[in-house]
Nucleic acid binder design. Sequence first.
RNA 1: GCCGGGAUGGCGGAACUGGUAGACGCGCCGGAUUCAAAAUCCGGUUCUGGAGACAGAGUGGGGGUUCGAUUCCCCCUCCCGGCACCA
Length: 816
Amino acid sequence: MSIPYKPDVVEAEAQQYWRDARCFEVDEDPSKDKFYCLTMFPYPSGKLHMGHVRVLTISDVIARYQRMQGKHVLQPMGWDAFGMPAENAAIKNRVPPAEWTYRNIDEMRTQMDRLGYAYDWSREIATCRPEYYRWEQWLFTKMFDKGLVYRKNSVVNWDPVDQTVLANEQVIDGRGWRSDALVERREIPQWFMKITAYADELLEELDRMPGWPESVKTMQRNWIGRSEGVELSFDVQGEEEPLTVYTTRPDTLFGVTYMAVAAEHPLAKKAAAGNREVAAFIEECVKTDASEATLETMEKKGMPLGISAIHPLTGDEVPLWVANFVLMSYGTGAVMAVPGHDERDWEFAKKHGIEIRQVIKPADGTRIDIQAEVYVDKGVLVNSGEWDGLDFEAAFNAIADHFEKTGRGRRAVNYRLRDWGVSRQRYWGAPIPIIYCDDCGAVPVPEEHLPVVLPEDVQVTGAGSPLKDMPEFVDVACPKCGKDARRETDTFDTFVESSWYFARYACPDADTAMLDERAAYWTPVDQYTGGIEHAILHLLYSRFFQRVMRDEGLTDVSEPFTNLLTQGMVLKDGAKMSKNKGNVVDPQELIAKYGADTVRLFMMFAAPPEQSLEWSDEGVQGSYRFLKRFWHAVLDHTVAGPVAALDASALDDDQKALRHKTHQTIRKINDDIGRRSSFNTAIAASMELLNAVNRFEDDSEQGRAVVHEALEAVVLMLSPMTPHICHALWKALGHDTAVIDQRWPAVDESALELATIELVVQVNGKLRGRVVVPADAGKDAIEQFAIADDNVQRFVGGKDIRKVIVVPGRLVNIVV
RNA sequence: GCCGGGAUGGCGGAACUGGUAGACGCGCCGGAUUCAAAAUCCGGUUCUGGAGACAGAGUGGGGGUUCGAUUCCCCCUCCCGGCACCA
């Protein structure tokens, strides 16, 4: 009996070896083929949870696999260290956010090491360090100079009791999470980055990104939401300024029977001044949170403003409404409404008794009743004066031309994408490097004064940012004129830090520039892995920032991530693991009980990476059992002494069959890991091969040689998933090199050749039998074999054969 | 509400390009080993009928295309992710 499998001993030994040999620290070597493998860096929330373990393991498997393919692999790790949870913990425990954060980082780093991840720790980043955030402050000032940032009013959630701005997450059923007060929308001045300036490039490049999942690219396309339409203006009674609206359906213009503006729109505010009902309605509208999901799902309400616009073609008066579903932040904050040909407008018109006018009819002549059902498809114009009979495209062009000629409108491309608001009224973030001067206005902090360091020794109370009460932070001299001025106390959205960290890993210690020449070697990231919840915001902001850095001359790279893998969540009892639900499984306990390899193996085996993973304690035990079987299979084999060289020409049929299985498995796992990131099936294939080895009882010289080859293959191919046990078993198989430095096993094509193959025989598409035929049998011969089968005869006998379909290597289908 | 995804045995999943539905693992049942238990090993395990050979049904629901559909098309239900201040 061989020695027992002791994961704690095996794992400590392997980790010691990697540490001593500095296996994962890499330099920039132009002679080598680089592979940059990256995980979305974690927020240091306290301890690792299973979601972390999953994504980190997926990435580690890819990194180790690529290394065995001969790549020069960089896999760094760091911390997305700014964020709200640190402030919440600070309020609760009276610990400064910085202290809490650094403590969590230390704990999580220790846990990661215990899981055996192949990180180059010499490149570790924490975004809350001034050495890091000074460079995003610097880039912000460069963007300021280029006009890529600007300040404007925008809506936030305001808690009227706590007198503070709330994140959407802190609004629960329209109320503040701490005060329980009804949340209000309030406008405050905030800084914006002009991501819309890159909208077209961000959209178009998606077509040239084969390494990203289609679903993510589709979501980004829809999010950017490019549309072609017409911007046109309606005169408003008693107003100097016309009301401008954007529409993608100028062909429906004759069907406009009302217009609607947002509650924050100047026309609505003006009307409210003279109309108590309107004022009350607007006040009502403001008492909701600012999220789009809320606005889109709540009951559609509106109120006539008592003023009218003039239809630019017919001269008709069109009543003006204020409506809760019109967004001030999208387009011009006003819409023209065509109830006959827009679903929402139709419902609103029905509810408020507004006229519904048909101006489009189906091109195929189908009759419709516009009063009974809305018609939103494109068709042919009716009731539209001189444009009657035109189709969508002709009408679009004719009407657009008309407006351009009269100077009352123009063709316009519109984006759903809005500029990125980066101001946060919070303490634990990177200070926005701006100084306000009464004379000079908003002045960016000069480069020689950067970084603007966030004071770390503070008391956080939850009632506004503590920075506001720190004169030593706020009171400064204007960098332009020297007069007394005030420093901006808002901090950056934490997405700013995560929009460029991937490039900084290449040169984390560069102290004279944001990026240096080392970034040119490592970027772009070859493989990026993270949660699907980041499909839009983080990934789009990163693509934007990469381009800003490019245009600043810091890099030639436009797309930060060549290949993207989005992993699913870890569930228990069908729900996401969370403290609230009380269904959290602590990785630490499992590692203590079974070892890191078992946890890693289960994570990779239980589900394909993109899908959600259902946690199972029994499943973990199964993985542990497999590793024990694996351990003993190798040690029982080696304990019998040295193995002779394999002679492929001297094998009997059973030995050939095992060899066939070995090389077939290598080919399959190559494809599973290398091409389709299908780690679960790769592990299943390894298990099958090991099962075949365990069933194979042959102590002859060549029998043991064939087993040795199979076991070496399994050790090599499982080593990305379970690196520690494979480190030990590789030595046990008689090697004095480390498995981490081995090359991936090669397929011996000659071992895959077969004399006969089994085919499935169907009759009318139903399985009726199996036949074994020579591998080189022709179609006619295969038909003969198939029809001769006894069971097939029962279904074919005496009937006319209409057709026989032979799928080479797979099946025969006889149609009778 | 809008955008993206998902649904396959008792459970997690496999079937990759329209070609054997259920690989692999868990659980369960039976057996071996043991004083006993744990651990381990061997066999069985989609459902229904049948001693069996085998037959019928079967991939969320309804329709369609095809010699053949988990896979393609249309409609529907439920679940998950995102919706711009959670990260």
